[in-house]
Write a protein that binds this DNA or RNA. Structure first.
Lengths: 200, 200
DNA sequence: CCATTTACACAACAAGTGTTATGAGTATGT
DNA sequence: ACATACTCATAACACTTGTTGTGTAAATGG
């Protein structure tokens, strides 16, 4: 029974939603045409209509990951160090939604390492995220809330810390509940704030 | 042409070597019976002889990962903070071998998140690694090279930092060459050493 | 020296994968 | 109203995957 309403855009959103659910449940390794189709109560014919080949669906999934990550509720917490803290907290898997998103991210690393093009795209996205973080760090430095030093370098360190904490929290949620994650992040920021003006 | 020499142990080592090469090249997602068999110049019949089912081969691969990780040349660098630094440096993908091992680790996270049993095993291994790190941290504190504070908590933070740095380095090796990784680690340790005695 | 067990190769199987072709309803423009 | 284009379902395809069975050399043990 074909669709009577040709609302192309709405249908595309449905497809994206199904892709997202499959990713959250089974990761990129479980992203199969029939899995997405089943989530839509449709067949693979529908998908090949929207995505000529599997790689197109995979590209769409990666786009989706980038989109939904950057579109996640970003509280934009105020000024200086507080803004840095809020930005980093926004990455951690503190909510169910953030956990799903991070689970997809971790899964994407495997496919990224297998495909140089995806890897390069990931590098670009993380670099962009670092740049935003760097600006926040620079502001905090200007406010005297963080010691002097290359803000880009500090952003690299902070992003590494948060990424690693994401991995730990996903693999061992019992040992790293939300408040523990926040506590560890605050430890890190406190150490950063009290560090000597910079070695170089 | 069947094997004329029944050296069971040596053959098993060959199989493990082939599994390792497949993992390093294609990750856990590419760990297929025929891929391993091809690496051995053998057929799937050989593998089913050593591993009745795929899950047995996967379990062996995970064992292999744990074994080879803990057996990696661990310089055991001296005392206190220096020992902490050496331990953390030993995790980073600074050499080709360490890069391969870390690439396999990252790949394993995807399969771990899909299988609670594997996930629990990972949690156990990381907890064990944290415990070792915690002891080194405690020693450094006793030597006055690190401020007071829960050493387990500090170990958690340090491990998170290093894990995240591993991910960044693997996804973007150009931006995170070995000396950059070491520099970022030293920044982190410097901040840690100059932190206030501990909030709690 | 023969019977049994080991250690595979070889081949076939069912299930799952992406891809492709065909066709049938529905919308759209003329 | 009718031809055309869109939006799928259906089905078959070639391929890969894990699994299983059969056969056969070599090792082993009595």
């Amino acid at each position: 029974m074909p669709r009577t309403k040709g609302d192309h855009e709405a249908r595309r959103r449905d497809v994206s939603e199904a892709v997202w659910r499959v990713l959250a449940a089974h990761g990129f390794g479980g992203l199969t045409l029939r899995a997405v189709a089943a989530e839509l109560d449709a067949t693979t014919g529908l998908l090949t209509h929207y995505f000529p080949a599997k790689r197109d669906l995979l590209a769409h999934a990666l786009d989706l990951l980038e989109q939904r990550t950057s579109a996640r509720p970003r509280p934009a917490g105020g000024d200086g160090l507080s803004a840095v803290r809020t930005a980093l907290l926004g990455i951690l898997p503190l909510t169910a939604e953030a956990t799903a998103s991070n689970r997809i991210w971790v899964s994407s690393w495997d496919t990224a390492l297998a495909d140089p093009a995806v890897s390069a795209n990931h590098a670009r996205m993380y670099a962009q995220s670092r740049d935003r973080l760097r600006d926040l760090v620079a502001t905090a430095q200007r406010l005297g809330e963080l010691p002097a030093g290359d803000p880009a370098r500090i952003a690299e360190g902070a992003q590494s810390f948060v990424l690693g904490l994401v991995v730990q929290a996903l693999l061992n949620p019992t040992a790293f509940p939300p408040d523990r994650q926040a506590g560890l992040l605050d430890d890190y920021l406190a150490a950063l704030a009290s560090a000597p003006p910079s070695p170089r």
